[in-house]
Nucleic acid binder design. Structure first.
Lengths: 200, 200, 200, 200
DNA sequence: GATGAATGAGTCTTCATTCAT
DNA sequence: CATGAATGAAGACTCATTCAT
């Protein structure tokens, strides 16, 4: 097997196990048993268990950042309304999370109970999205689209909390509603929930 | 020292450590060092590390349930508007979480990365509050106070996610804004955010 | 068993094994089997295998330094001849090494094949004795007792090499000749070997 | 690359590493990285790590023996004085060791911390030279050149220890004094140190 | 001959738990 | 009740060696 494929194979098996049992309850033994490879093989591709986890997070984070930037570039910011932009953000995030429920679970839940570097690796996602929403709101206020009297800090947290909790509930706990139609409906609901109080 | 005090002492030290480092990164050694007691003493009050954690969760959950029921009984449901009731729920939850940021952190973050019974012990809180909000929304729809066309499942998750994320952000990450005034302001903001889209 | 005794017990068993098989060929398993204790016990007294080795070296080095200083203080430097002083140094060193052949072996042989900190811990002895002899020779030259035309560097190495090799050969390889009489004879021979060419 | 060259290449790289880090702290990975060859290639020329080490020792030992016999045959034993013969032995040994400081280090230091066959392979040198000196002294005593009252065993060890320690100090630790002139001076010093007490 | 991915036995180390004092 | 020395199962990681290409 080629080097890249083997690395990917290990990551995939580790991902499934981390998502199901958490980081600490997943042993290297579990990963090699799941992948059907020898113990030493893991250490040819990763420096250790931590490296597997952070690699997983790194890759996912890179995809996340890329997805944000690509999608954002694709839209014509001048031709859409603030409402449409908000809906795009929400839909974009939900679609990304729905795509890989296991990583979604690790990032939103399993990873938050860790400490040190592992924790940091998992928390970056939430920090990133919180930053984006905060920036969006700030721009919205400046342009007059968003009401001036809202507390941006609180509102950003409300929105992020609402979106991520909902994503986790439906994509991970319920293991359903991951089709485009459901996502569209969820996006609409989220937008409709916040829009009246958000926009001028 | 009395039996109860000793037990409490252990729980308090364990709580602080669990909150700071997480369950797996907190050793019995850390707890006894922090409490200044002997190793064996821990096992006179708890059957083991898991028991300390679940005891912590059990106690907290009992307080949580009690807080809900007491406060709910205290208000006269007939004399307040649905909006006031919603605000009461939010404010009540925030106050409870603000009271003990360490447990708040364990319940909302550190505990979610666990597996098995430990996970269940930590997740009960979120399930409970989700159930309550769901019930409230259902009642609201039936009574005509809440709009009939909303998706209760999604809305319940949005609200729970928004409230808990905001609580964690301000009470744990920011380590501030835990005074009554701040909580009042947060409650108002949350209510104002959801009210327009929620109520008929 | 008291803490100190247990620690000593582990050190003694480790010493015997290190001396017989060398550091790398001695496993923690060997040490606990030899001492008849549990695996974990070792780690209550030492941070690891390295710590056992360096503790052994540290203790031995402290004894070595103490032995030098005590004995040196005991003698009246003004009342003895340079020849007598030289004999005293040699005899003192041989006596010390004869006292614990296992540590003698570790210090003079087994320890020299190590790397990093372990190596340093074992090499200190030879460096110390080389420094002492060099100082002695320098003083001797200044006082006129030692011939001015000798190369101190070379002579110091010759003497140290001769003494230590002889000690290792008789005390460790031959496992004999460790009684006071043999040591006295060895000292005399060594002194008689170097004296004619050393002293004015 | 020719078979012999490749074999030699591996040995040279291994030698440098063994000398610097010792046997146990040198991995096959280090050797192949240093030589810039593939892992499997090593096993086409050697049966394993031990074989590399013992091959190194075997070759060096063969050279050592050859150097002794050639040089000894070259001189006319009847035409030189015992003193000249002693000087020749010392000079011969120093020249040999100065020629390859890395092997000198392995043989005199790094190799002595090993166990089993590896140890034996490294210790042969010292045993050989000790045997030669012992024989020389015996012959000297018989022929009347060497004083009858010396203890041959002790004196042989003194001389071997002195010479080898000095060689290691100047050739390996100091990394200098390896030119013919320095060696000549060292030889003279060593001879002058022992001659007065050695010869009748 | 050369390669390098794969192997797995071997070791160290951790840490929750026990129990005699 | 309190203590803390002792335990040993469990788990991460290493590295010499193999073998199919």
């Amino acid at each position: 097997m080629k080097s890249d494929e083997r690395r990917r194979q290990i990551l995939e098996h580790a991902k499934a196990l981390f998502s199901r049992r958490g980081y600490h309850n997943t042993q290297i033994s579990d990963i090699i048993a799941s992948a059907g490879i020898a113990r030493g093989t893991v250490y040819q591709y990763f420096t250790g268990k931590e490296d597997i986890f952070t690699s997983l997070m790194r890759e996912y984070y890179a995809r996340w950042v890329k997805s944000i930037s690509i999608d954002t570039h694709r839209i014509d910011l001048k031709s859409i309304t603030p409402l449409e932009y908000f809906r795009f953000r929400v839909s974009n995030t939900l679609t990304f999370l729905a795509n890989d429920p296991e990583l979604c679970n690790i990032v939103l839940r399993m990873g938050t109970g860790l400490s040190g570097e592992l924790s940091a690796a998992a928390r970056r996602f939430e920090k990133k999205i919180l930053g984006l929403i905060t920036d969006d709101l700030r721009l919205g206020v400046r342009s007059g689209a968003v009401r001036k009297d809202i507390d941006i800090d609180i509102f950003a947290n409300l929105i992020v909390g609402a979106v991520l909790k909902t994503a986790h509930y439906f994509f991970v706990e319920r293991k359903s509603n991951r089709d485009a139609e459901s996502i569209a409906k969820m996006s609409d609901t989220i937008v409709s929930a916040f829009a009246p109080s958000l926009f001028s």
